[in-house]
């Protein structure tokens, strides 16, 4: 069975209509109807064009659809850098999806495919960056900050503990008694 890809699971258009819907609730029904009509017309006009631009992959053979989709959503498109290969409609993204598909079809593992792309485009294609000296600050940085925070916390706590306990010496207690004067005796007698 041939499936259109990736229109079937694109999330972006859905969230857009969601937002639109909540925004429109403030307005009266007639405007809503007009806008809905516009939307319906534009969808009818443009969706066939858009669908023609997306490639169809055949998932009846060697290539598992779930595996394919999860791999391309972990890979970054180099043209529209904040989209994954799965989301991007850039020309290069089409080519790279085709490449990933063909490599999977040849029985290559996910790691082999990732290595293939990294050898050409660098770590930049990965949304999940590998652990190596250049990325230490990325992976360990937050723990470093946490540790620094703990050090500051411990330091502050210790500072507070080291403050002398608030109590009067023997001599000072005598002075306090004098301060109270006769009242002290009165209190005792009471």
């Amino acid at each position: 069975m041939k499936r259109l890809y990736p229109s079937s699971y694109r999330r972006r258009p859905v969230s857009r209509t969601d937002r639109m819907d909540t925004g429109l609730r403030r307005y009266d029904g007639s405007l809503r109807m007009v806008l809905f009509a516009c939307l319906a017309v534009s969808v009818a006009l443009f969706s066939p064009v858009q669908a023609a631009g997306l490639e169809a992959f055949d998932f009846t053979g060697n290539v598992d659809e779930t595996r394919f989709k999860s791999l391309i959503s972990e890979l970054r498109c180099l043209v529209c850098q904040n989209q994954s290969l799965a989301d991007s409609d850039a020309d290069l993204a089409h080519d790279l999806r085709r490449e990933v598909y063909e490599l999977m079809d040849q029985g290559k593992s996910d790691q082999e495919i990732i290595d293939f792309l990294v050898a050409r485009y660098g770590d930049f294609v990965l949304y999940n960056p590998p652990l190596k000296p250049e990325t230490w600050i990325l992976w360990y940085g937050p723990f470093g900050l946490l540790a620094a925070g703990l050090v500051v916390l411990l330091y502050t706590v210790r500072q507070r503990r080291q403050q002398p306990e608030a109590r009067f010496s023997e001599q000072e207690q005598q002075r306090l008694k004098q301060l109270l004067g006769d009242d002290n005796h009165e209190d005792k007698s009471a």
């Binding site: 043209v79 290069l92 080519d95 490449e99 050409r120 485009y121």
Partner: peptide, 13 residues
Amino acid sequence: AEGRVGIDWGVYG
């Protein structure tokens, strides 16, 4: 024509 050599060379634009 198909941009395959481009991919091997890491061409993205």
